[in-house]
């Protein structure tokens, strides 16, 4: 228990220091020397721990899978038949899509340079929705860069060090993305919700949006490329002020199961806002 003036002075000094760091106006998102030193010490520990963890979970999952392997085989055979049919239809759609994109002089999504990164750690305390990947500024990863997987948008880079970067997930309330509802073409701002889902705000009151509608990135925030899948609308209601509609969105990505991600390395400014700019250059 603090008893002397010296004890109280040190409390005030440390809390004052903490407040100073918290409210310091110009914060660099690139980790400082302290953060880099800590990442250097903890990084290898995390990588070794994650590797061991994956070995153990691999063995465990293998055992669990073995139990259900017969039913799984039956189900997969049926699924393969369905997927073959879908593949044919998708190939046709892809061909048509390519032709149309060429005509409209739009950039195809896969033209963006990207980098594969491995998830090495999750948030330390669990109050936030973040994880760490094994790529940093040495690999060209910078704050604000979008992070995706095949199923859809994962989040964006918030902090980085030479060998590690931190990704803020779309389910965290601190991340906002400009999105569009595919069917109605209405726009809204997607933010994370504390219960692990997302909320799409500021949708036009006149919109005919409904449960099951797909949500994709609009590309208008200059951060995420246009058309990346985000999730599916679960329910729609009026906002508390009654000026807009709000929809709860279930993300396509299962965040607890992610092992590898794609970091889109393109410049963060102006995705799809100026189509054909690269060709003009």
């Amino acid at each position: 228990m603090p008893r002397s003036v010296k004890d109280i002075a040190i409390i005030i000094l440390l809390i004052g220091g903490g407040l100073l760091i918290l409210f310091w106006p110009t914060k660099s998102q690139e980790g400082g020397p302290v953060a880099r030193a800590i990442y250097t010490v903890v990084g290898p520990l995390q990588q070794a721990s994650t590797a061991a963890y994956r070995q153990v979970t691999g063995v465990w999952n293998g055992y669990v899978n073995l139990i259900h392997v017969r039913q799984e085989n039956e189900r997969l055979r049926e699924e393969v038949k369905g997927l073959k049919r879908e593949r044919g239809a998708l190939l046709n759609a892809e061909m048509e899509n390519r032709r149309l994109k060429k005509l409209l002089n739009l950039k195809a999504r896969n033209e963006f340079p990207f980098l594969v990164a491995q998830v090495i750690a999750e948030d330390a305390v669990g109050w936030y929705r973040t994880f760490f990947i094994n790529r940093g500024s040495e690999d060209g990863v910078l704050p604000e860069m979008p992070v995706t997987v095949a199923e859809g948008v994962v989040g964006r880079i918030v902090k980085n060090a030479p060998e590690v970067s931190q990704v803020l997930l779309i389910t965290d309330p601190n991340l906002s993305i400009d999105c569009r509802i595919t069917r109605t073409r209405d726009r809204g701002v997607l933010t994370g919700s504390l219960d692990g889902a997302c909320v799409l705000r500021y949708i036009n009151l006149e919109s005919g949006v409904g449960a099951g509608d797909e949500v994709v990135t609009s590309g208008l925030d200059g951060m995420f490329p246009r058309g990346l899948p985000v999730g599916k609308i679960a329910s729609v209601g009026k906002s508390s002020q009654g000026l807009f509609l709000e929809a709860r969105v279930t993300p396509h990505v299962n965040f607890s199961g992610i092992e590898e991600v794609l970091v889109i390395l393109a410049n963060t400014a102006g995705f799809d806002l100026k189509p054909g700019l690269d060709e003009k250059r």
Partner: peptide, 17 residues
């Protein structure tokens, strides 16, 4: 607290305080 700030989504200084 500084360690936790670095390894979580918290703003720098929050967990230190």
């Amino acid at each position: 607290g500084i360690f936790v700030d670095i390894f979580s989504g918290a703003p720098a200084g929050l967990f230190a305080i």
